[in-house]
Design a protein around this nucleic acid. Structure first.
Length: 956
RNA sequence: GCCCCCGUGGCGGAACUGGUCAGACGCGCCGGACUCAAAAUCCGGUGACCGAGAGGUCAUGUGGGUUCGAAUCCCACCGGGGGUACCA
């Protein structure tokens, strides 16, 4: 320490110039951050390529630690943001000190709606706001002292990054899913199979007989990226379509909370559904929180059952009705059918008149079925999804048609009703009111018969039970009678297969991924259209397709409730970019570029791979580098990042999409790992109290004080305000910035506090006033080592006493375990205990001070580096070995044995840890207080858990 | 409605696979030292109730159960959080 600046302005510094104050912390933290950068301390060597340093790689096992990278927010960070980053930094630093080659980097998810919405709101070009926001976040994060490899900090908006995003899109576009092989294959192999006849063409005609266009269509229909005219989520407020995963349950956009409408549009899709089974099955091979796995399983929504064909009576045989059911065993109880209002059956001819004896309730007062159905369809079409979902009452109308139940041979009426959704299964169901609650409700409303096909458990009907969905023996079901549900399902499915009227099948809730957006701030597609309007992939040599500069980048402005206008992507305004002449192998021809851009998720689907090899210009990642950092560790291992930390909010978005892309890349042989993230850890949120005045407006939380006379009452500018609790952020006016904490206490204090608040995976409330505790801890640790007057080390080289050596060993052992288990809160507690113990010593021996400093290093790296240097070490402690406890010191000479009588502690014995059970029992029974407690009663039983516990059960 | 997670002092939280009178560590609070004073720092105390005291009784959302022994395992209920929702 050589600083002398401004000490006179700081009265404390005059008294103790080397006291650990916020100012001192600030100075030493900045100095160490500069030094780490100058000395390339945290640059991780690769096994090959430009970042290679093979000698260093060979020495150390690798660890890849990853954070979910942030999008560059305009408001900067609050203290909740770096929680996960600090945790991974602690892990990374600990791993370096235990001899690992640690890859840890942080980039920016800078394309997409969040970044673009911010630009639109501030009226600045997204390039400008994105760059400014990234710069600000880099500054804030650097201040926290994160040990990232700066060479690997990519942004998804970098041209050299998104050229590879486009390249991966081409891989997806140029591949198809071979269901027999269970994997994706290059599209050229599909063409070859068509040519040789190994695979039949869709129409069954010979490949040679097809026109060019027919061939194109046959191939395009198999691509994993394809154009499709389908109902999509149209969000006029954002001027774009959205993926299912980006729309909330109440039909609004996750971003901006605008209404979303279903609307048929031609869009790019990704065939994620072909991976549904693998996406579910491989969850079992991942070290992820069970809750996230459950959410992905539910989202994919795999359900096994049967598809059953019902002949429509009186109609031509082609008009059969196909339904999906998970309960083929209940077929004998299918007493009516229901189709969705949008079902194709309703577009065909309907009977001219109501059949004789039609129940008047079925007709909705219409003169004939056509009128009834038309009016019901119009009514259903006029409802939003939200309205449709909020109405639980069953409505519907008879179509005049009857279908033949293949099991009973009887004709059952077919209804149109909006409780059946077009988007799931076949859009039609066989209704079994006896075994399905919704069908029961419909049957009740429309006087339809109920046939129970599973014997309800005793008392179910008497207790008012209606549809019985549980297990039981089949009844009223002919050849199924007596079988339990599982066997009945299998038997019925086989029966249907034998008769050719059904087949066992699996359906999914998961839909293909809508991949295009009518926005500006995203990756352009490497796609052009020829004069006939067919999409053509650009060759790799034409990458990157750069996003053109555009002064007016706003999406087409539409009212949030405008369901009808066509979106015009902003790129459509750059005519000189859109209309191009290219030579794609058959001479220069005019083409028109794809105007849509990719969604926000494109870059985050593979960024973890680019960290590995960020400067590679030949490939998105060198296979050897990928194998080193992410390859399987053993046969059967899925490979991937060793530790991925982030919030739960991406459970079915980023975490599903990136698994899908990664599997495509694996299938095509571009990566050796089957999964991107072997281990996932969800950190909790930092929450904070927020306050509202009597109008319900949020007031700045930092200005609110608790009424000293009345705890639980909160005051802001003299008025009483209501307290609430929520996620920290701008809208609740309860943000606390890391900058303020660094200024008031220093980055190390912030880090220690965030790690000590509680278990990492649990949300917890921020309390600025509690930060002081972490500061005091660092101050005490500092004082153990440094003379506050001279700044010199205070430690002595004499051996420590036995007790000190034991507590050091115990702390080392416990902290190492806590680090491995990511229990940073208890690690901090143990370090505080050690520090408090050392504080009581007249002078701290070096053999206690050095382990303390080293253990502190992952949590409070700047202070630790400074103390390490004061202790006389020249180089950084980033790679100094983490202390190892002497096992001999972990075994106490005497342990306390508790003696209980009937489970109540009556005595304590100091015994050797190696004491035998018999000896301990004898000792316990002889103890005077035990004898008193037994009070002459005999002993019924003695439980001995040597050396810690003896429990004596007296005779009654 | 269904699925998942969680209920421990005034507060955040400890308690390894059921086993040392549960409450580590920190905040806050109370008392003391230093100071003209305050801040900062340091030392001590702090689950509730009864008792002058040693000590005793009650305590891990509520009620049952399993066990020699339960915050920990099982059942039911109450409360909170998250996911999902007419998915056949």
């Amino acid at each position: 320490m050589t600083e002398t600046t401004d000490r006179s302005a700081d009265p404390v510094a005059v008294a103790a110039p080397f006291r650990y104050t916020a100012q001192l912390a600030d100075r030493l933290e900045t100095r160490w951050q500069d030094r780490w950068e100058a000395e390339h301390t945290f640059e991780a060597p690769n096994p090959a390529g430009p970042l290679a340093d093979p000698g260093k790689v060979a020495e150390r096992p690798k660890v890849y630690v990853l954070d979910m990278f942030p999008y560059p927010s305009g408001t900067g960070l609050h203290v909740g943001h770096p929680l996960g980053y600090i945790a991974t930094d602690v892990v990374g630093r600990y791993k370096r000190m235990t001899g690992h080659n640690v890859l840890h980097a942080l980039g920016y998810d800078s394309f997409g709606l969040p970044a673009e919405q911010y630009a639109v709101q501030t009226g600045q070009h997204p390039r400008v706001t994105t760059d400014a926001n990234v710069a600000n976040m880099r500054r804030q994060l650097r201040r926290i002292g994160l040990a990232h490899d700066p060479r690997r900090s990519i942004a998804t908006t970098d041209v050299e990054f998104y050229r590879w995003t486009q390249w991966i899109f081409l891989q997806v576009f140029n591949s198809w899913y071979d269901h027999e092989a269970g994997r994706a294959r290059p599209i050229a192999e599909l063409v070859a199979a068509f040519e040789t006849g190994a695979r039949p063409t869709p129409g069954g005609r010979a490949w040679a007989d097809l026109t060019d266009r027919e061939r194109r269509e046959a191939v395009d229909a198999q691509r994993l990226a394809y154009l499709s005219e389908a109902p999509v989520n149209w969000c006029p407020g954002l001027g774009t379509v959205l993926a299912n995963e980006e729309v909330s349950a109440d039909g609004r956009s996750d971003i901006g909370n605008f209404p979303v409408f279903k609307r048929s549009m031609r869009q790019w899709m990704m065939r994620i559904t072909t991976y549904a089974d693998r996406l579910i099955d491989d969850l079992d091979r991942l070290d992820w929180p069970e809750s996230i796995k459950i959410m992905q399983r539910n989202w994919i929504g795999r359900s096994e059952g049967a598809q059953v064909e019902f002949a429509v009576a009186g109609a031509d045989p082609a008009r059969s009705l196909s339904v999906f059911t998970t309960r083929p065993d209940t077929l004998f109880g299918a007493t009516f059918m229901v189709v969705a209002p949008e079902h194709a059956l309703l577009s065909g001819a309907l009977p001219a008149a109501w059949p004789d004896g039609t129940n008047p309730r079925w007709t909705a007062g219409a003169a004939d079925p056509a009128e009834a159905v038309a009016s019901y369809r119009a009514q259903a079409a006029g409802k939003t999804d939200l309205e449709r979902q909020s109405e639980r009452d069953k409505t519907g109308v008879f179509t005049g048609l009857f279908a033949v139940n293949p099991a009973t041979g009887s004709a059952v009426p077919v209804f149109a009703a909006d409780y059946v959704l077009m988007g799931y299964g076949t859009g039609a169901i066989m209704a079994v009111p006896g075994q399905d609650e919704r069908d029961w409700a419909f049957a009740e409303a429309y006087d339809l018969p109920v046939v129970r096909t599973v014997q309800p458990v005793d008392g179910f009907v008497d207790a008012g039970g209606k549809a019985f969905t549980g297990d039981g023996p089949a009844i009223n079901s002919g050849f199924l009678d007596g079988l339990a549900v599982v066997e009945a399902k299998a038997t019925m499915t086989q029966w249907l297969v034998d008769r050719g009227t059904g087949v066992g099948t699996i359906t999914y809730k998961l839909r293909d991924w809508l991949f295009s957006r009518q926005r500006y701030w995203g990756e352009p597609f490497p796609i052009v259209y020829d004069e006939t309007g067919l999409p053509i992939a650009l060759p790799e040599s034409m990458l990157p397709v750069e996003l053109p500069e555009l002064a007016d980048f706003s999406p087409t402005a539409l009212a949030p409730d405008d369901e009808l206008s066509q979106p015009i992507p902003p790129l459509g305004r750059v005519t000189e970019w859109v209309d191009v002449e290219l030579d794609l192998g058959d001479g220069p021809r005019p083409y028109r570029r794809e105007l849509n851009v990719m969604p926000q998720w494109a870059g985050s689907c593979w960024y973890e791979l680019r960290y590995l090899d960020p400067t590679n210009t030949e490939a998105f990642v060198d296979p050897e580098v990928e194998r080193y950092w992410m390859g399987p560790k053993s046969p059967g291992d899925v490979g991937g990042v060793d530790l991925y930390v982030g919030g739960v909010e991406h459970a079915v978005l980023h975490l599903l999409y990136s698994r899908f892309w990664h599997k495509v890349l694996f299938d095509l042989g571009h990566v050796s790992s089957e999964e991107p993230f072997r281990r996932l850890y969800n950190q909790g949120y930092i929450q904070a109290f927020a306050y509202t005045d009597e109008r319900g407006q949020h007031v700045p939380a930092e200005e609110v004080t608790e009424d000293p006379r009345e705890p639980g009452r909160y005051l802001w500018q003299g008025q009483v305000v209501e307290r609430e609790y929520g996620k920290m952020g701008k809208s609740l006016k309860n943000s606390v910035t890391p900058d303020d904490m660094c200024r008031d206490y220093g980055a190390d204090t912030l880090r220690v506090y965030e790690m000590s608040m509680g278990p990492l995976d649990v949300s917890r409330p921020w309390e600025t006033r509690a930060v002081i505790g972490s500061f005091r801890f660092l101050q005490r640790a500092w004082r153990c080592v440094v003379d506050e007057a001279s700044g010199r080390a205070l430690v002595v080289d004499e051996p420590a006493d036995e007790a000190t050596r034991r507590i050091v060993a115990r702390t080392v052992d416990g902290v190492a375990r806590d680090m491995e288990g990511m229990r940073f809160n208890t690690a901090v507690a143990k370090l505080i205990e050690l520090t408090n113990a050392l504080t009581k010593l007249p002078v701290v021996p070096r053999e206690a001070a050095e382990p303390l400093v080293l253990m502190l290093a992952p949590l409070a790296p700047h202070a630790a580096e400074e103390l390490w240097s004061i202790l006389g070490h020249d180089s950084t402690l980033a790679y100094a070995p983490f202390p190892v406890a002497d096992p001999a010191l972990l075994v106490d000479e005497l342990v306390t044995c508790v003696v209980q009588v009937s489970g109540k502690v009556k005595a304590r014995l100091e015994v050797a840890p190696t004491i035998g059970a018999d000896e301990l029992e004898t000792l316990a029974l002889a103890d005077p207080s035990v004898v008193t407690s037994l009070d002459g009663r005999g002993v019924a039983k003695v439980v001995v858990r040597a050396p810690k516990l003896v429990n004596i059960v007296p005779a009654p």
